[in-house]
Design a protein around this nucleic acid. Structure first.
Lengths: 328, 328
DNA sequence: TCAGACTATGAAAACGATTTCATGATTTCG
DNA sequence: CGAAATCATGAAATCGTTTTCATAGTCTGA
């Protein structure tokens, strides 16, 4: 492999001048520039990125944390981020935390060992105080996830409103008994906000809030099936169900259909995300502007890196949109 | 940030000894090792990865090429590869080619500039001769994609057989007029092989091959819808259709259902991949052992890197499985 | 015309690790 | 007991760039 030294020798110039040409510095005569370019061409030279990283103390690489890339919500986000990063000359390192606290912490070492210039988190497994110290080693941006204590740039969606418009839509369709179905009931601000939006819509309409209609631990199609059976077994059945994800909604729909229930007459279902399958089964759902938050978060990250901005709280909040289909 | 020098000074030892401790070399007394560890702890030291990369001439990073990460087939592959790589101490850089020859070539510079130790390609946009020269800079492994000219490790699926068992299944259900529907009709060996499997099944059963039933350029749900309308408009209609992807099959199913066709009575549909949506709409499909090829390909890559194996042709072929559902 | 600014170049330092080489000290073994 | 092998350590070279500093020539303007 040719080095900058070889190029310099062939062009009968110094390494410095070659480096200047590579980095488009001024103060190089066209004559010498031509010589350097010719030598580079001849030797098929490209600068070694490790050496460059070491000297410049930056990697032009950004790490993106997702729970699992197979989740369409996150893969959509990563697709947009990847393209945006690539346009700006950055690489993307993919970190799958698999919902594990340990893995999340392990990946944080990437920042400490200077393998990446910054981190974008789309979900957080650990408490913020576990993550905070790593801010000493580089910028962190939150995308989708939200945390009160984290004083860093945050691009997120107004979950209260998301759940609110979904629930209100069901109310407007005449439903009064509306079940609520969510993923984790943990300390996640995200889950908390959605629940708040649901309750707010009920309260506004003067509707009953029934503890038994709150179903948790729902993530997958399989969970959705389980939840349908739970609903079917209830004495006082809800007539509509709000879900926190299209997967769960699909599972409910599937099992309901298998039991010859008519949707939405026997049960109205509303999903979340507008994933491809939603169109297939005619699922009413709440669309998240994924492309938008992904692009904003990546933009924020690159700006922070390039202008060496101080890390501080900066909230960008975006809104949802309801997509009405046959399931409600 | 503390450097190895700082650690050495604090421990009153040389850089060399500190380095030995970090890299678990023998010939360090327990006494000194303890001193070093203590100093590292005290200074909160971690080795700088850029310096390490430069000196060791390796990056512990692998690039994975996919067309788009949002395609469930590829995101599944990347999920498995990511986890496998992480277990072995490697990072994953995600390269989305977006089906563009240019982008593919651009990303190849990663190998040349030594930003990654190796490349896994899950699809190829350019001719092999465009890619081959990059083998001088590091190993390349093919996963899913196949190319006759490429003398490199290749993990792939027996596409001939895949299409064959799908088509034969339709024949066994009594169909004699079977349409065939595929993505690109390019020089891709993958597409060629599938077509071969389809024709082979027809021929074995002594069935007619009809040019008009060969539909191309089908990738998305939208394409599937278009294809349904094309089929519906035919004078001599097929009674079953073999598709190269679940997305396309879903599109056909969706549009057919919207037109009140009964599946499979009016039209039998078979998909490819067994994506989550296939279960939802009861799509018969051909399952690919994605986890298996992903794991094998990554294993092959790491083995090649670590044992500095010469790059040579090595084929690993795996088989498909038919999943029967309601659409046939 | 001469001081200061600007242009053009190269030598050498710096980035932060690992590896090679050299040197003793200690152990092994015929 | 003495030579060879093994253990333990550090100084210095090395990986391949970019950056700083020094130097010298050329312009510019009062």
């Amino acid at each position: 492999m040719a080095t900058i030294q070889d190029v310099a020798k062939l062009a009968r110039l110094s390494r410095t001048t070659v480096s200047r040409v590579i980095n488009h510095h001024p103060y190089v005569t066209d004559e010498k520039k031509r010589l350097v370019l010719k030598a580079m061409e001849e030797l098929n030279y490209v600068p070694n990125s490790s050496a460059r990283r070491l000297r410049k103390q930056q990697t032009e690489t950004i790490a993106v944390y997702v729970p699992r890339i197979t989740n369409p919500f996150f893969s959509q986000m990563v697709e947009v981020m990847g393209n945006h990063a690539s346009e700006k000359g950055y690489q993307l390192i993919l970190c799958q935390t698999s919902y594990s606290r340990n893995k999340e912490i392990n990946y944080l070492e990437l920042l400490k060992t200077k393998q990446v210039d910054g981190l974008i988190l789309t979900s957080i497994e650990n408490e913020w105080r576990e993550i905070k110290p790593y801010l000493n080693y580089g910028p962190i941006v939150l995308c989708n996830e939200y945390n009160d204590d984290a004083d860093i740039p945050t691009v997120y969606l107004n979950q209260v409103e998301g759940a609110y418009i979904g629930t209100r839509h069901l109310i407007e369709q005449g439903h009064t008994k509306i079940a609520y179905c969510s993923g984790d009931n943990s300390a996640s601000r995200l889950a908390f906000d959605r629940f708040k939006g649901y309750k707010q819509a009920l309260k506004e309409a003067g509707l009953e809030f029934n503890d038994k209609w709150i179903l948790t631990n729902a993530f997958s199609i399989k969970d959705g099936k389980r939840i349908f059976r739970a609903i079917a077994d209830m004495e006082d059945r809800p007539t509509a169900v709000f879900t926190g994800s299209d997967e769960v909604a699909s599972g409910i729909w599937l099992e309901a259909t298998n039991h010859y229930w008519s949707i939405p007459d026997d049960l109205a279902i509303i999903g979340f995300d507008d994933q491809p399958q939603a169109e297939l089964i005619g699922l009413t759902t709440i669309e998240q502007p994924i492309d938008e938050i992904a692009k904003r978060a990546m933009g924020q990250m690159i700006e922070t890196i390039e202008n060496k901005l101080p890390i501080k709280k900066k909230e960008i909040q975006l809104n949802f949109q309801l997509i009405k289909r046959r399931s409600t």
